[in-house]
Nucleic acid binder design. Structure first.
Lengths: 202, 202, 202, 202
DNA sequence: AATGAATGAGACTTCATTCAT
DNA sequence: GATGAATGAAGTCTCATTCAT
């Protein structure tokens, strides 16, 4: 009942939520939104399904907050800021970005978020605020990669043509891979990245 | 009571089945197996859901027969035989294959079948006979493209390396695109094909 | 278009109805009312299910008319009148009744009607007019057998006790047998009848 | 959190299952397998149909487990062992068996199980494991009564003839009664038993 | 007259959500 | 806080009935 208690409780509560959100991201990413049962999230988080409702209003709310949390952790922007400090060409930066973004361990969840966003593209019956979240999240990739594409074209590293269109196609392909084969990046990452880069490298 | 009568009826029945299978392929491709409701197939075919059961035993049977029918129409093999008659390099043949396979109108359904097969890869709880059908169908692409990849490598048109792995990655990317953006090939097909080809062109 | 034609048509129609009713009685008797599908009746009558609706309003109507027709053919009363002409004791008449009633060929349908009536006892959700028909039909057996039971008791052939109760139990057992094992009477009829008679024989 | 807690929960769960199985046995017995709706079981158990699925996988599983449970409670064998300790003639034992088996109160469910087994004889489209259960259960009656029939014939209490056939007919009649009139044994049990016994008593 | 194509109510089952403990 | 018991909407499939041919 001491004031400290309240804080501790609050923190514990937050930890629980994180435990659930981490599980949710994984399960949503693996199965898609509709096919993910509350059951599966609870099992992945090693709690009872009833408890999920103690921390979240609904399945939809779990999705929303998990995405929010995942994007925050995702920190694409920060990743780029980090990259920009290094002395690399535009193409090398793009390559580095892919290596970092998709070859993550347990912590990042970048891939999970990316994959969920793909699943969501094909779920037209979701509420607006979720679609907005997606929209916003998708933008991050565009906003950070577009300048690099432009830079690459100027320096002659990247093929000519409409940079925006090229970027969109590039992202479509990345999305597609993640939707198609979640384990794609697990093996031979470097080789695969280099092949993909060939598409845009002059 | 003329002999023509029976034939006509039989043909009409077959047309109805085709109407349903065409609808089913589209809806399955767009939504995945589990998320496709009989309702959706029926609505797409502009009939009542009850009627679907007049022509097919179950949802699973609709899937199976539709795939079978779609693959038959698909005729990847025939397409290649046609190609091989022409005087083209391996890379040009691969390019032609993509142009023909993915830029079809309403008739071909090649893309739908391709996408469903992708969905099915991630549905481990389907009966054996469907998985066999998929397996078999997937093989067609490999069996027809693999020799071309080899040929391309020998002639120096295609980059060095493990041809099988390269082909698998190539197919994963194609699958991913179709899963991700069904309308991908509608516009700018030629340019998109050329970009993709860059991945493997030496 | 001649007047004769009308009659012939009328007769043909009646024959068709009989064909259906005969089939219906058999299928209803074997499967019970609810579990009998229109399909099964049609197949048994070797016609399409649609045609049944040409001759009858509904499944319920098929049941009603079939029962009516079956009871008419059944002619328990006539059977007894026949028996009464012979010089037999009451017990021998009861025995004869059973032999005739249950060991019939294709024509009689006595057993079918009897069995359907049993099924109907346990179908409380049927319309009134059908229940009335049943009621009425059940009475025939009681009305014709009751005097024989009385007579048998007076002559000392049948055991003492409440004749009505004894008869009711006897009929329950007969009904039960037909519900339980439709083919019961096919074999060893005489021996089985004699065993059953032992229950009431003094 | 006391150790008792888990046990209590487990016990409560078991009680719920028993509540459902008791209801199921009654409803199955009254209506037959196919005509029994999950709804009816739920209503009889005074719960929602959804809850039934919390405790059982499917309707079929409800049937299977209910039968198993009912047979266990049934304990025909134990009943006979009890009887055999007493100094009774074979016929008297058969009589006692019937009195005990069919004049039970709420607890026994012997009659329900017996009736369901009859219904099942006429349901050829049930899975094997259920048929095996039935088979096995049916055997109990035969295995326990057959020796008594033989014994009775040797001592001259029971009429001559093929004991097996006689027993089969006897059981058919019992089954039939239970199928036909579930309340048959409620009243006048002793008298009814004595009449039935007359069939086989020398 | 005859067929069987077409429809939709109802039954089984799944699963998100609420609630008692 | 934590569990899982309880409910009911929605999806798959069956089948009586209507209707076009």
């Amino acid at each position: 009942m001491s004031p400290m208690n309240t804080d501790q409780l609050e923190q514990k509560k937050q930890e629980r939520k994180v435990q659930i959100m981490r599980a949710a991201l994984k399960v949503f990413a693996d199965n898609g939104i509709k096919l993910t049962k509350m059951n599966m999230i609870a099992k992945e988080a090693k709690i009872s399904y009833g408890l999920v409702y103690h921390y979240f209003e609904s399945k939809e709310q779990v999705l929303y907050e998990s995405l929010e949390w995942g994007m925050e952790r995702n920190k694409t922007k920060e990743m780029f800021d980090e990259l920009n400090k290094k002395q690399l060409s535009a193409l090398e930066k793009i390559k580095s970005f892919m290596m970092v973004a998709f070859k993550e361990g347990d912590t990042g969840r970048t891939g999970d978020v990316f994959r969920i966003i793909q699943h969501l593209h094909s779920s037209p019956d979701l509420p607006t605020h979720i679609h907005e979240l997606i929209e916003q999240s998708g933008k991050v990739y565009i906003e950070t990669l577009y300048p690099l594409f432009m830079e690459g074209q100027e320096s002659g590293e990247i093929i000519e043509g409409n940079a925006e269109e090229l970027l969109r196609m590039y992202l479509t392909i990345l999305s597609g891979i993640m939707a198609e084969d979640p384990l794609f990046w697990k093996e031979n990452t470097e080789w695969k990245v280099s092949i993909l880069i060939r598409m845009i490298a002059a």
